[in-house]
Simulated assay, not measured.
Amino acid sequence: MDRATLDAHDPIWGSEDKPLRVDLHRLTPEESALYDDLRDNCIRAGLRLEQEHIGFYWLISSPSTP
């Protein structure tokens, strides 16, 4: 997930009681930076966005979609 997608969906942000705190090695540099911000609670403590709630229109119109 990219930061633009996360920011665009702040009305549906949720909360994660037990967030994952491991290193993820297969992320792009941009994904890794966002993951670090989420893991380190830099945006909001326990922030979670369920990807299932992201609308299909957003996915097909997003500039980061390959």
Rank of each mutant, 00 (worst) to 15 (best):
W13K: 09
E30H: 03
G55P: 09
A33C: 07
L59K: 07
Q51I: 03
L6N: 04
D36I: 03
G14K: 06
Y57A: 08
P29G: 05
Y57T: 04
H53S: 14
V22P: 00
L59A: 12
D2N: 10
S64E: 07
C42S: 14
L27V: 01
R48P: 00
L6S: 00
D37W: 01
N41D: 15
P11W: 15
P63D: 02
D10I: 02
L38E: 05
L47G: 02
D7A: 15
T65E: 14
L27C: 10
I60S: 09
R44D: 15
R48M: 09
A33Y: 02
L20M: 05
L27E: 06
P63Q: 05
L34H: 01
A45G: 03
S61C: 11
G14P: 00
H25T: 08
I60E: 13
I43T: 00
S32A: 10
Y35K: 04
I54H: 04
I60M: 08
S15A: 09
C42R: 15
E16K: 08
L24A: 05
A45F: 08
N41R: 15
P66F: 05
C42P: 00
A45N: 06
D10W: 15
V22E: 13
W58M: 02
L49R: 03
F56C: 07
I54E: 04
D2V: 09
M1V: 02
R39E: 05
K18D: 06
S32H: 11
L20S: 05
H53M: 15
H9P: 00
F56N: 08
I12W: 01
H25N: 14
Q51V: 10
L38Q: 04
S64T: 11
L27S: 09
P19V: 03
I43D: 03
I60Y: 14
N41W: 14
W13L: 06
R44I: 04
L27N: 02
E52Y: 03
I43G: 00
D40C: 12
Y57V: 11
Y57C: 01
S61R: 12
L47C: 08
R48T: 01
I12N: 08
D23C: 04
T65A: 13
T5R: 05
L59Q: 11
L27M: 11
R48N: 15
A8Q: 07
D7T: 13
E50Q: 10
L38G: 00
E31W: 04
E50N: 12
A33L: 14
L49Y: 02
D40F: 06
E30M: 08
P66S: 06
S32K: 12
T5Q: 10
H9F: 15
V22W: 01
I60D: 10
F56L: 10
D23H: 12
L20N: 10
Y35N: 06
H9I: 09
S61G: 13
T28Q: 09
S62F: 00
T65H: 13
Y35D: 04
A45P: 00
D36Q: 09
I54N: 02
T28D: 08
R44E: 15
